[in-house]
Amino acid sequence: MTRKDNNPIVSLLSRIVSPFIMLFALYVIFHGHYSPGGGFQGGTMLAAAVLLIRLAAGREISQLQFKKSWGTPVGSVGVFIYFFTGFLALLMGGNYLDYSFLPLGLEAPVTRGWGILSIEIGVGLAVMGILVAIYDDLLEGEPND
């Protein structure tokens, strides 16, 4: 992070490990409603995979994976997914976040499952974007990185 020399072992190992962390994070998010885990944990693991590449490879190379300007938009999209799912249920006549009123054309338990899944995806995107944005803002003034 502060030195410019690149350790090949560290960069190679982080390059191998980071996609598997992302894959496990997606597993955690998509199985969040019937196993331990969920949106927050999965989003944090996605952010950890991105931050691992940022720590190991430096700032310029890690821009190829996740650009510095993407953090806040991804977080905003996650918050919008969460809000829109709740507000759609409100528009269809139920309470806020009452998933069984979502207009999917399925039975109530199946509709609740899909509603909770979309909530988890929104929370995961929001947590990932904001954590990466916090890291990038901490390293804002660094000249070479």
Partner: peptide, 26 residues
């Protein structure tokens, strides 16, 4: 409490350590 333990492992062992290291180098 598997869910709490999962959250603690991910946040405490992963992300907060990275943020602390960044602040030490800053």
């Amino acid at each position: 409490a598997v869910d709490v333990g999962f959250t603690e492992a991910v946040v405490g062992g992963g992300v907060s350590g990275i943020l602390f290291i960044v602040l030490i180098f800053k």
